[in-house]
């Protein structure tokens, strides 16, 4: 197991309005990983990131960053971390090139113009580098935030929904670049609502809901151990399960999804699952289906299932 770059321990945050955003969050981010922090809106992801960025104060708990206590060794930790906040903010007095030079200076570094030019180039801001930030589009401003988080070459980059409002093509290129940054040894912690992208990019994942971590492991392990498979059967487009049907099929956790009856399958052993039993149970109750198939849960399914279970 790779040593953690970041260990969050029993972190709690209660806002002054009484809202408990984090209820004892603990998780570890391995060094060099591309880590997805997922959760529905209001789950506490941004609160966690804002505490790391020092824009929100924690109520209790601790964060260890590369062996340094984040709350007592703030300046060291800040100097080695780059954060892209969720809200687009831009300094209206300066150009992107000036902003990047300034961020370098604030982090105590002499601006490295070669690196700044590379960032501007790779984030497709080079031709706008000398315009005032007010003249940039929303997507450009968001890319500038990414450049700001990278310009001082931090060891951990935290991206809080960095691709919201960025078009598909640009998003792909941005992820490609992030992959290169990660491959060069920088740990990346990402929050996003694009779960397919998270599944493709990230090697580790944590799911947070209502201020609690409900799953945290490597992506492979989560998809192997938590993700199940389900049998879908098509009968007719508009139907609902009666309470008696739900009860009769309760061992398969039945649900209607997009007009399909979905039954969760469990493994009996390495060779066989409960597929045959589930199919027969449905056939006996509703008759032969018009169509049927088996699907493997992806990250989105796991995410939805786990967060739904929390609500129940």
């Amino acid at each position: 197991m790779t040593s953690p770059v970041l260990s969050v321990n029993q972190l709690c945050k209660a806002y002054s309005n009484g809202k408990e955003a984090l209820k004892g969050v603990s998780l570890s981010v391995p060094e060099g990983s591309f880590f997805a922090l997922l959760g529905p809106n209001g789950a506490g992801k941004s609160t966690l990131i804002n505490i790391m960025a020092d824009t929100v104060l924690p109520t209790s708990g601790s964060i260890d960053f590369l062996g340094h206590d984040m709350f007592s060794e703030r300046l060291w930790c800040k100097g080695n971390m780059g954060v892209v906040p969720q809200e687009v903010a831009f300094d209206p007095f300066f150009t992107p090139r000036e902003v990047l030079s300034m961020v370098c200076g604030l982090y105590g570094q002499k601006p490295d113009m070669k690196w700044i030019n590379e960032l501007l180039e790779r984030l497709e801001l080079a031709e706008h580098a000398n315009k005032n930030t007010r003249q940039l589009s929303g997507g450009m401003r968001r890319r500038l935030l990414v450049a700001q988080a990278l310009v001082h070459r931090p060891r951990l980059v935290v991206l809080d929904e960095p691709t919201a409002g960025v078009d598909v093509e640009l998003r792909k290129r941005l992820w490609e670049y992030m992959r290169e940054i990660n491959a060069s040894g920088t740990t990346i912690l990402l929050t996003t609502h694009y779960l397919e992208e998270a599944e493709e990019l990230c090697d580790h994942v944590a799911i947070i809901d209502r201020g609690n971590v409900i799953a945290s492991s490597s992506m492979k392990k989560l998809l192997h151990e938590v993700a199940g498979s389900y049998l879908w059967l098509r009968y007719r487009d508009d139907w609902e399960l009666a309470a008696t049907d739900v009860e009769a099929l309760s061992e398969f956790n039945p649900r209607i999804d997009d007009g399909l009856l979905c039954l969760t399958l469990n493994r009996i052993d390495l060779q066989q699952s409960t597929f045959h039993h589930a199919y027969e149970s449905a056939r006996l109750r509703f008759g032969p289906p018009l169509d049927a198939g088996v699907c493997q849960e992806d990250l989105e399914d796991v995410f939805l299932r786990l967060t739904r279970e929390q609500i129940i």
Binding site: A89, L106, G108
Partner: peptide, 18 residues
């Protein structure tokens, strides 16, 4: 106040300055 209204002040809070 411009920083607070435009949310730019967070960059100062995040910077490693005492």
């Amino acid at each position: 106040i411009i920083g607070k209204v435009m949310n730019v002040h967070i960059y100062l809070l995040m910077a490693p300055l005492s």
